[in-house]
Design a protein around this nucleic acid. Structure first.
Lengths: 150, 150
DNA sequence: AGCATATGCGTGTAATTACACCTATATGCG
DNA sequence: CGCATATAGGTGTAATTACACGCATATGCT
């Protein structure tokens, strides 16, 4: 095998990533503001619209802590955009989208599209493509969980 | 000029970026845990160690809201790692690192290094290099602020 | 000198994130 | 059946993030 690096060759990948995430999030949020929804919420809503799931399943897909997802769903439920109903196993909560939620999604979609297009046009199609490729490669390779946490 | 995209070609760049940020943050945090410091705090501390600055200057460099920085500095100050002193202009706060802060940095550096090296070895030197290149390109091209907010 | 404005920073509010831990329910084994 | 354990979810606590706004101080103009 090739010599594994024992000394970092770049700056803090995490810090750079987080900085970019802040910047990009601001762009999307600015575009979505007229619909009074944030990109995090929009993503959650769009994801929920792909079918009913339990909190755990949902959290696993997003690779988000269950408790984080619970908390993030609360404002969406408060707006009446998602439904949280008890499943067959009463321990389960089935997360779904309401009619109002679908309406919201429909209204916000063009705003999200504008944000996404702005980013794509600024970075160039090739640039965004390569960025996405790198992100996906990292998501495919990096461990999902760093601790124990069954 | 080339035809500007009017329809998005990729998924939500923001969501993918945030997902990766979550994952990477968990990795760094897990490595830094023995020193009871999170990667966000470590970054802040390392950045502060580069010289005294006002909150606004600091926030501008990190492209972080001033209020966000204020809040993030609070726990570091509570630990005695950073000093927040009133400047010549009493409106200013000068942010600096304390001796304890430098000690903390020194103790945490090898842990950060391990995290960074782990990421680099998993993604490969070339992979991380390309990821960084894409991040830097995006940071260079994308607008810093999306709203007004002088 | 005095007031309008600009600047610097914090607070209020709210959402995002995660770990540790608790509760409730289900399941498996004697 | 009854109890140990596993599973699903939420709470407590704390940090990260940002917008709107407020307070204090400085600066500029008359």
């Amino acid at each position: 095998m090739s010599p594994t690096a024992t000394v970092p060759s770049y700056g803090c990948t995490c810090a750079r990533l987080r900085k970019l995430a802040r910047r990009v999030t601001r762009i999307y949020d600015a575009h979505l503001a007229p619909q009074a929804i944030k990109v995090t919420q929009y993503s959650l809503l769009a994801n929920a619209a792909r079918g009913e799931r339990t909190v755990s399943e949902f959290a696993a897909e997003l690779e988000m802590d269950r408790s984080t997802l619970s908390r993030n769903l609360a404002p969406l439920a408060a707006h009446g955009w998602v439904s949280i109903s008890v499943g067959a196993d009463p321990r389960n909560r089935s997360i779904g989208v309401t009619t109002a939620g679908r309406r919201k999604l429909k209204a916000a979609l063009p705003l999200w599209r504008k944000a996404q297009c702005e980013v794509e046009s600024i970075l160039g199609t090739a640039g965004v493509g390569e960025l996405h490729r790198r992100i996906e490669a990292a998501l495919a390779a990096l461990p999902t969980t760093s601790g124990k946490r069954t």
